[in-house]
Design a protein around this nucleic acid. Structure first.
Length: 416
RNA sequence: CGGGGAUUAGUUCAGAUGGCCAGAACGUACGCUUUGGGAGCGUAAGGUCGCCGGUUCAAGUCCGGCAUCCCCGACCA
């Protein structure tokens, strides 16, 4: 991609009221555009990163048997009345058609996926079933905040599982935990705390949150300094400084975190509402056991920025960066240098390396460096009068640069 | 929903105590000079000062209401 053609420019300054780093840096870098409080557009760079995050999630969902579908954002009132959530959930966006029919604009999809599953599930032989999708969700938050971390509209992957019995559910629940850890690991978040939390309005069971420890978070957490044990402050019985009850080695620390995932034991809460049954191997009718599992995709994007940035800009983890390589062409008025730039650009494309080429003429070297730091692509290449037959290579997360051949650079990029 | 702050050029912001044609920087356009850490000079375009009402000879500036955004809290599948 040529930077000169890319929609969305870097900005030197943004509104000083934007205190959170994801809001500031994603706006400055040209990744997002705020439409209104809690409502954002994604520009090409932001959309790329989100797609990469979604693809990692897809791969891990498919790996545990998940099948991707797409369910509507416009949902009939009757479905919500059946679960008794039409008048009890206060964050619902409701709307009415010109003919008077009433709808909920999707905050989640139990009301759709359960009757959908009912149409195809008759026997225990039809189970287990794992359905997921990645769609926008709408919640009428009283106070959107922290850039894209908490909005009225946000991206979310939601997976729903259907089981013949509780035991089967419990086995799958553990598989999802493993899959989630892989996902967060692959998008660059190595330190994830799996936190016991309350089950919310539909379940007395415990649920588990996946939390990223960062001062920018809004969840208060008690976590062990040594092992992965953590508890949400809501239900915590422990205090700061106490010995960890699990490993008996670390001390409990109180800290802020961003909740990027949450998984729930739904039991038969929704199966009951929609009369979702299956017959077991004795021919007896049994309610289907359900679980649901969410990951906030746009929130994850924001959380990654909160964790990976410095005073100059974003530092994207390799797997989700908008492009792998940022090629800066300096001294492009020099014909030979210009030819070298074009050659390197074409070679990288040939090797299937995603490259953003800053081909802008009449832009100072300093500005190109600053923009590259802000945008945060992992590998930076410079071709200029100075670099001769070689190419200057620098990683965004390191200080020193070195002169390498194109072959050496391609090898480095493939290694990650 | 309670409390605090903000709203002036495309963007970020200045504009005590009311007073001529409302300012800067960045960005944009054109010309020249430039190219290794957000370059320089020159020229130009660009504004219902968030909206409604009030006070006044006179309001960006004072008063009242409303809207929107940000922050703290409450809330949060």
């Amino acid at each position: 991609m040529l930077y000169s053609k890319l929609f969305g420019k870097t900005k030197k300054t943004v509104n000083q009221q934007f205190e959170s780093k994801n809001h500031e840096l994603l706006t400055k870098g040209g990744f997002i555009d705020q439409v209104s409080s809690g409502i954002y557009s994604l520009l090409p760079l932001g959309k790329k990163v989100l797609s990469h995050i979604e693809n990692v999630i897809r791969q891990e969902m498919e790996a545990i048997g998940g099948q991707e579908i797409s369910m509507p954002l416009l949902q009939p009132k009757i479905n919500w009345q059946k679960t008794n959530r039409w008048s009890t959930v206060d964050i619902l966006f409701k709307t009415k058609s010109q003919y008077g029919q009433e709808y909920v604009i999707a905050p989640t999809h139990e009301e759709i996926v359960t009757p959908l599953a009912k149409k195809y599930i008759e026997s225990y032989r039809d189970l287990p079933l794992y359905l997921y999708h990645i769609t926008p969700k709408f919640r009428d938050e009283p106070r959107p905040k922290s850039g894209i971390l908490r909005g009225k509209e946000f991206g979310m992957k939601d997976l729903y599982s259907f089981h013949a019995d509780k035991k089967d559910f419990e086995i799958f629940y553990q598989k999802v935990i493993e899959a989630y850890l892989k996902i967060f690991n692959r998008v660059g978040l190595k330190e994830i705390k799996i936190t016991e939390a309350s089950g919310g309005s539909f379940s007395k069971k415990l649920s588990h949150e996946f939390n990223v420890i960062t001062p920018a978070g809004e969840v208060d957490l008690f976590y062990c300094s040594f092992c992965s044990f953590a508890q949400n402050q809501e239900i915590a019985t422990l205090k700061e400084g106490e010995l960890c009850p699990r490993c008996r080695k670390g001390r409990m620390i109180k800290g802020k975190a961003i909740e990027v995932g949450n998984i729930f034991d739904l039991n038969t809460r929704f199966s009951d509402s929609f009369d979702l049954f299956c017959v077991d191997n004795q021919g007896e009718k049994k309610p289907v056991y359900m679980g649901c599992y969410g990951i906030g995709t746009t929130r994850l994007l924001g959380a990654i920025v909160e964790v990976y940035h410095d005073d100059k800009g974003i530092i994207w983890p390799e797997n989700i960066a908008p492009y792998q390589v940022h090629l800066l062409g300096l001294d492009q008025q020099d014909k030979i240098v210009n030819q070298n730039c074009q050659k390197v650009y074409q070679q990288l494309i040939k090797k299937k390396i995603a490259v953003l080429f800053d081909d802008r003429q009449e832009i100072s070297a300093g500005q190109k460096f600053s923009d590259a730091d802000l945008i945060g692509i992992p590998h930076r290449l410079v071709v200029s009068k100075r670099t001769g037959e070689k190419i200057e290579y620098k990683r965004r997360d390191q200080k020193e640069s070195k002169l390498l051949t194109l072959e050496e650079i391609i090898k480095l990029c493939h290694q990650g």
